[in-house]
Design a protein around this nucleic acid. Sequence first.
DNA 1: CGGGCACTTGATAGTAATCAAGTCCGGTGG
DNA 2: CCACCGGACTTGATTACTATCAAGTGCCCG
Lengths: 237, 237
Amino acid sequence: MDKSLYACDSCQHKLCAGRVSLFTSLDTDQLLQVIKLIVHKEYKKGELLLFEGEVRNDLVIVNKGQVKAFRNTIDGREQILYIFSEGDFFGEKNLLRDQPSNYAVEALEETHVCIIHKNDFQKLVKEYPDIGLKVMEVLCQRLDRLENAVETMGTRTVGARVSSVLLEFADKFGKQSPQGIIIDLPLSREGIANYIGLTRETVSRKMSSMQDQGLIEMIGNKKVLLLNRTALEKSIE
Amino acid sequence: MDKSLYACDSCQHKLCAGRVSLFTSLDTDQLLQVIKLIVHKEYKKGELLLFEGEVRNDLVIVNKGQVKAFRNTIDGREQILYIFSEGDFFGEKNLLRDQPSNYAVEALEETHVCIIHKNDFQKLVKEYPDIGLKVMEVLCQRLDRLENAVETMGTRTVGARVSSVLLEFADKFGKQSPQGIIIDLPLSREGIANYIGLTRETVSRKMSSMQDQGLIEMIGNKKVLLLNRTALEKSIE
DNA sequence: CGGGCACTTGATAGTAATCAAGTCCGGTGG
DNA sequence: CCACCGGACTTGATTACTATCAAGTGCCCG
């Protein structure tokens, strides 16, 4: 994939908005109209796109890069709720009423976003009801993911938690290769731990033992090769 | 509150649908139109309204009673995801596409529901866009609840988990009284445990210790008196 | 080549699950 | 009205597991 195609420079002229599932129902002219409403912004790794509790009145669409949405918990941990990648959006609650955000959002790498004001977006939804349906669809997907997460977090065995996050990342970030699925991990060990409510040491230990069992193979710290997907799925039980 | 007002008998003639937040934007004539589309159904305690994995094509609105939505996890537990009470609905995913349900739904007590077919509901949404917005709003609330749940389940201390569920139930089912907030527990100890990923013994122990600390007072097994809400909130930290 | 940071590995302690008795309460039948 | 029964809840003892604390180790980048 040539990332440069998605750079914000080309956005302004090509139809970057068309790549976002929200707007797939629109034709070229309509997309051009949408693009006029969009403000672009770029963030470096580690920069905050949104503070926990901040009140905003726009919708943010990730156009390039990755961000994490997280909360600082009362017991001093960081609970990661979502990883948003290209095409994902956040701030949808702002469309309904002005509410403080439940989570902070931080760039995991160089990230470019498209920002659209609540009023403009609401007009779009009224004009093109399909966009509203798309939003609803994404919200339902997000519910699915959180329902799974609640189940995972309630699971008492560490193995099941780590397996489920690897399988989730395999679906979202994995690439098929001759040996198996290669996963580009969006998070560090500590990040993974904060995603599933464990400590980094426990995640580290479990991944090592999975490697010993021949289920996965670690390639540096940022990649994992999933050798035997079905065995990993079974190991959850 | 006189429950008989909400019985399905009167539904057919009075405007039961008007009590549901989904339809608050409609006037009397419109409500009558909606009511024509509704099928009523009743369930006894313990009966299943929906099986895990079942594919349905309608939206179910709880008109009286309470139900739990839950999944049977791979490690043999039951993970409760939601408690739906009067005015809540489920099956919203069916509005978009036919998907198997993520969870089973079981009546916690005698429960009456209103069922509306997907096609009819879609027509309603097109005719009265406010209904679509309401659905979106409820989905966002559900996301809020699950985001909190994920944080809670990631919390390492048992006290925080039990406190958070009591506070949640206090908001949803609590009644103000001179001594404090009286909570009608929708779930047994085991049910609470399955809601927050603990065992019934642990929940029992923690509630006993909270009683010893003067934070709560148990009234039989079905009610809890919340003596000191702010102290309970603080005890989470 | 060196420094720093993320990760791994080891030892220990604390906590919740598990296993196992009891106890309480509501309901039922005499 | 009371005695009994069963299910839900409580409490206790033990075990297993993961967090925590503490050293290392390896890798990436200047």
